[in-house]
Write a protein that binds this DNA or RNA. Structure first.
Lengths: 210, 210
DNA sequence: TAGATTGTTAATCGATTAACAATC
DNA sequence: TAGATTGTTAATCGATTAACAATC
């Protein structure tokens, strides 16, 4: 099957399956079912099976799925069965918090460069990283083989940094700036904006219960 | 129209419209069109108009939308035309980064309490906040009229904190813990997990270009 | 008036799910 | 064998979009 034919919404659920499988594995389970995965994610068992069926047959009738095997398969599909190198742009509070966030390394995302534009920060040590000058971005990305960038700069600088990243050959950007970045179609962009999340919840809150 | 009948996917787009309108307003524009909004978000103009039509008629034929007016209307619909009080649980690096993140206050989300369970942190001043004991959660939430909680504690404590929040009457939770929280149906939950975002992007990256 | 753009309908498209044969 | 659960088909459901009358 042509991979381009797989709906994006299916791709977005695969990481959720992986996360659920990790939880089950951490609890010592070795086998699970589409029912159990679905229950934990609030979706139907049929949907879990249908999603997986785009990529192959991973289960056994009557038994379910061997957790370790399904994890391996999903990691291969998502291409997270290898290490990806990240560059972090911006070493403010958020940047520092991200540097201490161990989940990146645990999931195969290696922080391979840390950059800032502030002269007072450049050259400083932050954890095991030396802060590099953002002006050297293209060389750093090339020399260190970086594939994914994490933007943690002030909002006003985010678009400029994003443009520079694309120019330097980056094709996937995770941005913490609360603005809509305008970038070429072929660039993968994910934005993390807690305001959007909050605004999506308040709609459903009962104002009378304030 | 029964508000319950409005698709959730529509509700999730309204904050994006608000964010786009803010961008346009910041650039000094006073009027826009469904075309312009859609272009900036990568969706069709028809979808923008259809989404808005669930709630009323906000534009003028031939002219488009008065930006300020549409912002007001969307804020009312999303119930962000008022101030919501947040409690932040967890004052690690991430918590501190969130405390300096001005976008919350700018969008009407007031950080009204900051709590931690670490005795070394309780009583300390962080910015303009005194760190409170998480054991006093129910009283703090009641006394300060807090409606939404932000979880920024270590992963292993997240579920326990979430349970305590629900018990204390919180009905909306924004969690930065990279796990699936298991909570009652009626609780609004949004999770921010950069690993999910990254794993969704690597699928689309061309491995040959590493 | 001519041009532009809205709001809405109906058609289309795509995602979800019910049902079930296959089989462990 | 009986029970459980997969993988898949076809039906259903719901979201998107093309088209266009209305009108500024």
């Amino acid at each position: 099957m042509n991979p381009l034919a797989i709906p994006e919404i299916v791709i977005r659920r695969l990481p959720l399956y992986l996360r659920t499988l990790k939880l089950l594995a951490d609890r010592g389970l070795t086998v699970t079912s589409s029912q159990e995965i679905g229950d934990r994610l609030g979706i139907t068992a049929t949907q879990v099976r249908k999603d997986l069926s785009y990529f192959g047959e991973f289960g056994k009738q009557g038994t379910g799925y061997e957790i370790k095997y399904l994890q391996e398969q999903l990691r291969q599909i998502l291409q997270v069965d290898r290490t990806w190198k990240l560059a972090l742009i911006g070493v403010g509070d958020l940047g520092r918090a991200l540097l201490r966030f161990t989940a990146f390394e645990e999931s195969g995302f290696e922080m391979a460069a840390v950059l800032d534009r502030d002269g007072a920060k450049i050259g400083r040590q932050v954890g095991r990283h030396t802060v590099l000058d953002v002006a050297t971005l293209p060389a750093v990305i090339r020399e260190r083989g970086i594939q994914v960038a994490v933007i943690a700069v002030p909002t006003r600088d985010a678009q400029e940094i994003a443009d520079a990243l694309v120019k330097a050959g980056i094709r996937a950007i995770l941005s913490y700036a609360p603005i809509q970045l305008s970038l070429p179609q072929h660039i993968q962009v994910q934005q993390i904006d807690p305001i959007l999340s909050l605004q999506g919840m308040t709609y459903y809150l009962d104002a009378s219960q304030l």
